[in-house]
Design a protein around this nucleic acid. Structure first.
Lengths: 153, 153
DNA sequence: CGCAATTAGCTTGCACACAATGTAATCGCA
DNA sequence: TGCGATTACATTGTGTGCAAGCTAATTGCG
């Protein structure tokens, strides 16, 4: 029950509260939940919103590149993008000079949605309640963790 | 390009790389993926591992309390715990003095698994590659974000 | 005491995530 | 040029997450 005997040197115990991994997992879900009502008003889920972020930057992107940007595989992206297509936000078409590639392109509706989404990052950023310095530090640490655990299988 | 304020002061743009939320989401999945092979050797998924962490601390816990600890609802926990039961790691039984409550209890196998799981936090902790100070700071910032976005509406 | 409200849990439906497998198009090299 | 490897994507199956609706047990209030 006390923290005097706290594992080796860095809190590597089996206590739930010691786990950075759990803090990460819980924070990620809490933030996604915070997004939910805002994105629901736009007709998007959170992963769909991330795909739209990529498209709002580039307009036409192969599925492969979307997967590289978001670190998601085809099993996730294929049905997700088909739902975006059903919603009229994107168009899917094979690249003429390489029929293996599927290009995803914003429709007019997809472009218009960008305007309605402009305030979303600010709303969430405010809700996180971090100072600019904390915001940058958190982002830096998370990128470091991602890079480290992704390296060397 | 845009006459409206772009929120450059804290990265509140629509650029994917600016989003703390994406860094969080990507880091969480990357860490979970790093756990996968380690936990597979124990016959656990990552959320199942979290439930076991709670049980390794308390031995017998109502489902409600597991949900409170992990911030997961019954829709997630009911089938998950039934799978743990099928694997022989836990037992489920109604509390005699309040038949609404389901108590989850470790079996012998479930207790033995704790020994085999002892090295998991260390392995993951090492893979994250953070200094003790960074580890604590990351955990602190993540808890702050979780608390802030969970508060109010 | 009687009954409405609350509580704990279950079930269904939808949308991710990811592993494993399949397929068509393209590439590369003898 | 022929053909085996590679690439880009789709499909299937399993396991979460979460909302919404449901049941049964308990509580609380007149």
């Amino acid at each position: 029950m006390d923290s005097t005997e706290n594992g080796t040197e860095q809190g590597f115990s089996l206590l739930l509260d010691d786990q950075l991994c759990f803090a990460l997992y819980a924070a990620s879900r809490a933030v996604t939940n915070r997004y939910r009502p805002l994105l629901e008003a736009l007709g998007l889920t959170y992963p769909q919103y991330l795909v739209m972020l990529v498209l709002w930057e580039h307009d036409t992107v192969p599925i492969k590149d979307i997967g590289a940007a978001l670190q998601l595989d085809y099993g996730t992206l294929t049905p997700l993008i088909k739902r975006l297509e059903s919603a009229g936000l994107v168009r899917r078409e094979r690249r003429p000079d390489d029929e293996r590639t599927v290009l995803v392109t914003l429709t007019g509706q997809g472009q218009e949605l960008r305007e309605r989404a402009r305030t979303v990052p600010t709303d969430i950023g405010d809700a996180m309640g971090l100072s600019p310095a904390q915001f940058d530090q958190a982002r830096r640490l998370l990128r470091l963790v991602t890079a480290n655990v992704s390296a060397s299988g």
